[in-house]
């Protein structure tokens, strides 16, 4: 993890009047699994397309391995892309698709074939080489696109929401495989996604985007536990913010504070066990349960605080059933969490 694979300096892009990317400074290290996370229209895909060379920046500079590539064409950059809709060549077989980058580089045919087969084996598609992309399922096409981009061993692999079109089960399976593959080949992966859970589970580091700007860069734990803006606090994980008067009354100071739902424990208002616990280390708040959402393995309680505002508390259904938790609706409860889980959000 020494050296930097990609460095962006004040990168900008506008399409006519609209600003897609408004000045990004970012360093992605060698061998990292790095995610660009943000809602649609936040500029993350535009940043990726500028790194690939499909879009020319309006301003700023892009460096790949220390070399300025800002004005270079896509075919002059040592990066390959896995497209959202795979972009496989429909008139070629799977093998020809995978071998394309090698053919372009005039690698001899025999070697091409060996390396294409090896790349297909890496993504567990041995024996599919003679088929056409149209004869494969979505998940298989995804793997072919991956093999095609990896076969030339680029310095950086760019992935543009590659799992977006897959169903949930397949997506979870591919997340694990993708992460394992990245560890195996040791190539820097830059992964664009709008799915915060995906970013948290797969990444070494995450950059959170909103409206063409960087909100926060950090490890999944930093992003989740210590969000530095209210946007990050609400976009990553469930939004649970205490602001203004409510913050004053619950936390004791003015400002914006974030508490993750799973850190909050819920009990009846009069519960001894909770109120008696080591006082100064804890924050408590009383309120009324407005809504109970049964999720199977856990339950989400939406609680309207007497102090104002609403907090969500998440409880594992260790001993409770659906009927048990439903009975909470409309009851008075006391919420308690450790003081260190109250995170001050600077802006």
């Amino acid at each position: 993890m020494e050296g930097s694979a990609i460095r962006l300096h004040d990168l900008r892009k506008s399409f006519g009047e609209t600003t897609a990317v408004a000045g990004i400074d970012l360093e992605i290290r060698d061998g990292e699994f790095f995610s660009l996370l943000g809602p649609s229209g936040s500029g993350k895909t535009t940043v990726l397309r500028m790194i690939a060379g499909f879009e020319t920046p309006t301003g700023g500079r892009i460096e790949l391995a220390g070399q300025d590539v800002t004005g270079l064409a896509p075919f002059e950059r040592d990066v390959h892309t896995v497209f959202q809709d795979y972009a496989l060549f429909p008139h070629m077989t799977v093998e020809q698709n995978v071998a394309y980058a090698l053919k372009v580089r005039k690698v001899p045919k025999a070697e091409r074939l060996v390396r294409a087969r090896k790349a297909l084996a890496e993504v567990r598609l041995d024996g599919y080489g003679k088929r056409r992309p149209g004869q494969l399922s979505g998940g298989q096409r995804q793997r072919v696109a991956l093999a095609r981009a990896l076969v030339g061993r680029p310095r950086v692999l760019l992935l543009d929401e590659p799992l977006g079109a897959l169903d949930l089960k397949l997506r979870e399976q591919m997340q694990v495989e993708l992460k394992a593959l990245q560890r195996e080949v040791g190539i820097t992966f830059v992964f664009v996604t709008h799915d915060q859970e995906e970013a948290l589970t797969m990444s070494d580091r995450i950059a959170v985007f909103d409206q063409g700007r960087l909100e926060q860069v950090g490890t999944p734990a930093e992003i989740y536990e210590r969000p530095v803006t209210s946007f990050v606090a609400s976009f990553v994980g469930t939004s649970n913010l205490l602001v203004g008067e409510a913050a004053q009354r619950v936390v004791g100071t003015h400002g914006t504070f974030s508490v993750r739902p799973e850190k909050i424990r819920i009990a009846e208002e009069s519960a001894e066990e909770l109120t008696d616990a080591d006082g100064p280390e804890h924050t408590t708040a009383v309120g009324t349960v407005a809504e109970v959402v049964y999720l199977g393995d856990s339950t989400r309680f939406l609680v309207d605080l007497d102090a104002g505002g609403r907090l969500t508390a998440l409880q594992q259904n260790l001993e409770t059933s659906a009927e048990d938790v439903a009975a909470y609706r409309g009851t008075r409860v006391r919420l308690r969490w450790q003081r260190r889980h109250t995170v001050h959000v600077p802006d």
């Binding site: 690939a52 060379g53 499909f54 064409a73 896509p74 075919f75 990066v79 390959h80 892309t81 497209f83 809709d85 972009a87 496989l88 060549f89 394309y100 980058a101 372009v104 580089r105 095609r148 981009a149 030339g152």
Partner: peptide, 13 residues
Amino acid sequence: ANLLDASADLGAR
């Protein structure tokens, strides 16, 4: 259009 992008991305002029 993304087939043309993909081709350029894989090194084709």
